[in-house]
């Protein structure tokens, strides 16, 4: 392809974009809407994924010890836990430690638990580190059997729940995205059809003077891709703005999990967005030119 021919395609494509203004706006809006929804699901999936990772990576479980056990009994339980294979290390957390840690977690809201020191509701526990994440379940079963252990908790149930949620989000998201994708393709294809129709005389003449199918097709493909790209850039912009605002808000209020920073999310999805946007555009225009080319 010659450079001036490429320039011709782009010039003609942009002329089309300008010519059917109302349909151009409609197309861009629908692509933007489709990609916004896509982005929303993507952000949720990425975040839930990262939450699951945060929980899973801790590789530790907590064995709560009967409140009435004194230090010597507790030490004995500790020995027994240590003896289980797969246990890497154990740390004792006294009732006082537990309260202090909770305070730390609460940060500047630690005043909420002021006054609990004398009637400490926090249990004493061993924090058990496991050599391998897969051993979690097995080790926790073993620990449960020991006298004086009231309860064993580990992140697995949370992780399982999160993974379940991700699965549902993925399926619902995929379905919604597919529908929006199809709608966008149809709207773009109608937009391009208008352009092709208003130029059918020109296309007819081009065919007579020996233009190849691709020569005729390219400007319309350019038009479609431009519509798709503009839509996806808009979607990225809006999404980045809203998410940046939302993640600031959430990260300041929520303590347990942090949302991924907006920059990371946008960077990860940018390429996909642009690719999907131009794919929608190319498909839309490809469909509508096809039947006009037979002269």
């Amino acid at each position: 392809m010659r450079l001036n021919t490429a320039a011709y395609y782009i010039r003609e494509g942009l002329t089309n974009v300008r010519r059917n203004r109302a349909m151009t706006v409609a197309s861009i809006t629908s692509v933007t809407a489709a990609l916004l929804i896509l982005g929303l699901f993507l952000i949720i999936i990425l975040n839930v994924d990262s939450m699951a990772n945060q929980v899973e990576s801790q590789l530790e479980l907590k064995a709560f010890i009967n409140d009435n056990y004194d230090m010597s009994k507790v030490t004995k339980v500790g020995e027994e836990i240590k003896a289980i294979s797969g246990v890497k290390s154990i740390t004792f957390e006294s009732k006082k430690d537990a309260l202090n840690n909770f305070k730390k977690q609460l940060g500047d809201k630690s005043y909420l638990v002021n006054g609990l020191e004398n009637d400490n509701p926090m249990p004493q526990s061993f924090i058990v580190k496991v050599t391998d994440a897969n051993m979690m379940k097995q080790v926790s079963e073993e620990i449960k059997k020991i006298d004086g252990v009231t309860q064993v908790s580990y992140g697995q149930d949370v992780v399982d729940k999160l993974l379940g949620i991700i699965k549902i989000i993925r399926i619902v998201g995929l379905f919604v995205i597919l529908i929006l994708f199809i709608i966008s393709v149809v709207i773009i294809s109608n937009t391009i059809k208008l352009g092709v129709f208003s130029r059918r005389r020109e296309i007819n003449i081009m065919k007579y003077i020996g233009a190849t199918d691709w020569f005729i097709r390219w400007p319309f493909l350019v038009e479609g891709i431009v519509l798709g790209l503009v839509g996806s850039v808009l979607a990225i912009g809006i999404l980045g703005f809203i998410y940046g605002y939302a993640s600031d808000l959430v990260n300041n209020k929520l303590i347990i999990f942090t949302l991924l920073p907006a920059g990371v999310v946008i960077r990860q999805s940018l390429v996909y967005f642009l690719a999907i946007g131009s794919l929608i555009g190319a498909l839309g225009s490809g469909i509508s030119i096809k039947r006009f080319l037979n002269v």
């Binding site: 003449i205 020996g210 199918d213």
Partner: peptide, 22 residues
């Protein structure tokens, strides 16, 4: 073949009754 047709037409100039100018 379909894609050879443009090259045939480049070798045959056409003039129509209704001119067909843009």
């Amino acid at each position: 073949k379909r894609k050879e047709v443009p090259y045939l037409r480049r070798n045959i100039g056409v003039v129509f009754q209704d001119f067909k100018l843009l």
